[in-house]
C-alpha cells in the first residue's frame, strides 16, 4: 500500500526520517535505510535540515525508493525559487517520488552557511498551491504542462506554538491550499495534543504526531529553552531525572513508546512521525515497545 492508501485506509501510519549526510560517504545512511525498511511505512527525507548543507533530499529520496522504501520528499523554500522548486517537483515525479512535504524551511541563520542569501520566493502555503496546480497539469504561471504530477502533499504544524492562534490560521490556510496530511512538531503533552486534535479533526486531513525521543533531562530542558513550539512537561523531566544518567535514554525510549501506544489505542490521531535525530537504530525498538511490531 502506498502512503496515501495507508492513511486513507485508516491504518495507523508510522513515518521516520532519513537525514542525508554531508559528503559522499553514504554507508551509514544505507544502514539507516536497512534498519527502517519493512518497519516504518515511509521515510521522510530532510531537505538541508536546520539549513546545514547536505546531499539533496531529491537524490536521497530516489536512493530510498530504489532500496525498497517509499520516501516523503521534504522541500523547503529557503534554497530554491519557484522555478527551481517546480523543476525539482517534476524531477521527483518522473523518478517515482509521489509524496512531498511542503515547508518554509529554517532560516540560514540556523545553519552552516550563515552568509547565504535566503530565497523564500514562495513559502509553504504557496508551495502547496503549486503542487496542487501541477497535480492538475499546470505550472504556477498557468502554463499547461505535458503530463501532470500526482503528488500526495503534506505540511507541518506546531500544535504547541506560542502564541497558538496565528499558527492555527496558517494551518487552516495549508489545508485550503491542498495539504492532505500533516506531520507535527514534537509533542509531549498528551492532554494538550488531544485538545489540539479535537480542533484539527474538523478538517479533512490526516495528522501524524511528531515524536522526538528524549535522551536526558538535560536535552528536555534544552529544548524547552531553545526550540520554539516544544514543551516537555515537568513530570517527564522528573521521570528522566529519576532514571539516572545511565537509564535516561532507556526511559526516553519508553516515554516515546508509551505516547505512541496511547495515540494509537485512543485513536487520537492517524499516525506518528518519529524524528530519531541520529538514533535511527532505536526506531524498531520504540515501535516494538509501542506494540506496533
Amino acid at each position: 500500500m502506498s502512503f496515501r492508501e495507508i492513511l486513507e485506509s485508516g491504518k495507523f501510519a508510522v513515518t521516520a526520517e532519513i537525514g542525508p549526510p554531508k559528503g559522499t560517504d553514504i554507508k551509514e545512511m544505507y544502514h539507516h535505510i536497512e534498519v527502517l525498511k519493512g518497519k516504518i511505512d515511509v521515510a521522510n527525507v530532510t531537505d538541508n535540515q536546520s539549513a546545514v548543507m547536505r546531499i539533496s533530499s531529491l537524490a536521497v529520496s530516489k536512493i530510498v525508493l530504489d532500496n525498497g522504501m517509499e520516501p516523503v520528499l521534504q522541500m523547503t523554500c529557503r534554497d530554491r525559487n519557484r522555478i527551481g522548486l517546480q523543476a525539482d517537483l517534476l524531477g521527483a515525479s518522473v523518478l517515482g517520488i509521489h509524496n512531498v512535504l511542503c515547508l518554509t524551511g529554517d532560516h540560514v541563520n540556523a545553519g552552516d552557511h550563515k552568509q547565504a542569501k535566503s530565497v523564500y520566493d514562495v513559502e509553504s502555503v504557496q508551495l502547496l498551491k503549486i503542487v496542487e496546480g501541477m497535480n492538475n497539469g499546470k505550472d504556477m504561471s498557468g502554463n499547461e504542462m505535458k503530463g501532470a504530477t500526482n503528488f500526495y502533499a503534506g505540511a507541518v504544524v506546531t500544535p504547541e506554538a506560542v502564541p497558538l492562534e496565528p499558527q492555527l490560521v496558517k494551518f487552516e490556510k495549508k489545508v485550503k491550499a491542498g495539504a492532505k496530511f500533516f506531520q507535527t512538531q514534537a509533542i509531549y503533552d498528551m492532554e494538550k495534543f488531544k485538545s489540539f486534535m479535537q480542533y484539527a479533526k474538523k478538517f479533512p486531513v490526516k495528522m501524524l504526531a511528531g515524536i522526538v525521543v528524549l535522551k536526558s533531562a538535560g536535552m528536555a530542558n534544552f529544548m524547552n529553552k531553545n526550540v520554539p513550539g516544544i514543551t516537555v512537561p515537568q513530570e517527564l523531566i522528573e521521570e528522566l531525572k529519576a532514571a539516572g544518567k545511565e537509564k535516561a535514554l532507556e526511559t526516553g525510549i519508553n516515554i516515546a513508546a508509551r505516547h505512541i501506544k496511547q495515540l494509537k489505542d485512543e485513536k487520537i490521531c492517524d499516525g506518528v512521525h518519529i524524528m530519531a535525530i541520529g538514533m535511527e537504530d532505536k526506531v524498531p525498538m520504540i515501535m516494538e515497545r509501542a506494540g506496533l511490531l
Binding site: H107, S118, A161, P166, Q167, V169, K173, Q185, P228, G229
Partner: peptide, 28 residues
C-alpha cells in the same frame, strides 16, 4: 526574516523570531 506572506513559520517563539530573540515576529 523570511518575508512570509501567509502567517508565521514554525520558528515563531513567544512573539520573537527564530533568527533572534531581539527581533519581534512580524506575523504575531
Amino acid at each position: 526574516s523570511k518575508s512570509l506572506l501567509n502567517g508565521p513559520c514554525g520558528g515563531t517563539n513567544s512573539g520573537s523570531c527564530e533568527v533572534s530573540p531581539d527581533i519581534k515576529c512580524a506575523w504575531v
